[in-house]
Simulated scan of single mutants.
Amino acid sequence: MTKKALFSPIICAFLALLLVILIPNSWIESLIPKSRVSQAATELNPVMFQGKYIQSKMLENNRYLPIYGSSELARLDAFHPSNYFQENYDGFVPFLVGRGGTISIIHFLNLAEHTDQLKGKKLVFVLSPQWFQPRGADESHFVPNYSSLQGYDLALNNKINPVVKKDAIKRLLHFVPVRDDQLLKTLYLGEISNDPWVKRKALLVKPLAYAYRGILEKKDLYYSIIGGTSRSREIKQTVKNKSWTQLQQLAAQEGARQATNNRFLVINSQYNKMKKKVPSLKGYKRGASYGRSVEYYDFQLVLDLLKQSGAKPLFISVPVNGPWYDYTGFTKQGRTSYYKRIKEQVQAEGYPIADFSNHEYDPYFMKDTIHIGWKGWVYVDKAIKDFYDNKTPQKSIQM
């Protein structure tokens, strides 16, 4: 094989890559299907969460109400907001943002990309007690949900309150993907250090950072052309034109049909996966508490960012499965201390919160040990509707 034959594929690949990078963003955007945003509303696609284009398009369209959360958003059933508001259209379409492990610091990075679009924007933020472990988010939850694009956008964003930005950077530097990215780490250290040489290094590499972010943005656009894989949804018209009382009854009936093989009222399919381990889990959480956690500080970053941006959020405080938590020895005090603290933290910023913490023992409010479902979604649907209709959060939890 001649040298020319050997290097020709390499040269062609390099030229092709160069061409892909040099194509104007506007050209790429013109290739993205107009239906991509509506498709992404329930796809729960990590590519969308970690990108920017689709969420930007969603936020500029008043048709969508973003709902930020984590794994509970994937519990798609007839009573889930995506189904309920499709069958009972009230002027908006829920747009789901989050998956398992999408904790406060990840939401902060995501929202920080869109601060200019959040002024006056209504949104819903679902809180999960299990985020509030004593040490906060760990690598196993952070790594799969971290976005380099969002990390660089934060570094190059000069509009965020400097104090909030520095606090966020200090927190992010605890995580391996950030520490291992030498370019990003240099930028971050330049933000928080008082050392002139460290700041000078950050200034020197900034042009490289802008160029690399440009590549990441282009990558996001190409992914937006391809789109994601649609999730199967249980579209049912049984929730259409029903009163809240009727919906509660239907939800309880559905829960009773699907949770029949255990005293914790966990959906059968989930309990079958954990059944063998249940005896060994009795009392294993003795002494645990969600009342003290690094996560409260990460969550405060979210609150500070929303306050600065002028967003209008509603927070949903989800309970845990009381019988299951009692069985594992997780004390009532360890739960109520969380409910109380998170409610006070939200209300201190003047935001409404739909607090469902008194539903720990409400049959079929939860679908498993930690995820809301069935009857719980009915309460959330009403809270969202009342919030969108500018009713008080107190009224939104009375059924």
Results as ranks from 00 to 15, higher is better:
Glu113Leu: 03
Phe92Gln: 09
Lys122Trp: 08
Leu109Ser: 00
Arg63Thr: 14
Asn61Gln: 06
Ile103Phe: 14
Lys119Thr: 12
Phe92Pro: 13
Asn61Gly: 09
Thr115Phe: 09
Asp77Lys: 03
Gly98Thr: 03
Asn62Phe: 08
Arg75Gly: 07
Gln86Phe: 15
Ser104Asn: 12
Leu109Cys: 05
Val124Ser: 13
Ile103Val: 11
Leu109Gly: 01
Ile105Cys: 05
Gly100Lys: 05
His114Gln: 00
Leu73Lys: 03
Leu118His: 01
Ser82Leu: 14
Ser56Phe: 00
Val124Gly: 13
Leu109Trp: 00
Arg99Met: 14
Tyr64Asn: 08
His80Asp: 06
Arg99Thr: 11
Asp90Phe: 04
Leu65Cys: 12
Val126Asp: 02
Tyr84Asn: 07
Gln117Met: 15
Asn61Glu: 13
Gly98Leu: 04
Phe85Arg: 09
Lys57Ile: 00
Pro81Met: 15
Gly120Pro: 07
Lys119Asn: 15
Gly120Leu: 10
Lys122Asn: 15
Glu60Ser: 14
Asn61Cys: 09
Lys121Thr: 10
Phe85Met: 10
Phe95Ala: 11
Lys122Phe: 09
Lys57His: 07
Lys121Leu: 11
Phe92Ser: 10
Ile106Asp: 08
Leu118Phe: 02
Asn88Lys: 06
Arg75Cys: 10
Gln117Arg: 15
Glu113Gly: 05
Leu76Lys: 11
Val126Met: 15
Ile67Trp: 14
Phe125Gln: 10
Gln55Pro: 01
Lys121Ile: 05
Phe108Asp: 10
Asn83Phe: 09
Lys121Asp: 08
Leu73Thr: 04
Leu123Trp: 05
Phe85Thr: 08
Leu111Gln: 08
Val124Asn: 13
Ile103Leu: 12
Leu118Glu: 01
Glu113Met: 07
Ile67Ser: 14
Ser82Tyr: 13
Phe95Ser: 11
Ser70Met: 03
Leu96Arg: 13
Gln55Trp: 02
Gly101Thr: 01
Gln86Asp: 14
Asn88Trp: 09
Phe92His: 12
His107Thr: 04
Ile106Asn: 07
Ala78Asp: 00
Ala112Thr: 02
Phe95Trp: 12
Leu111Ala: 07
Asn61Ile: 09
Phe92Trp: 14
Asp90Arg: 11
Asn110Cys: 02
Leu96Met: 14
Ser104Trp: 09
Gly91Val: 11
Pro81His: 14
Ala78Lys: 01
Gly101Arg: 05
Tyr84Pro: 08
Ser56Thr: 05
Gly69Thr: 08
Ile103Lys: 11
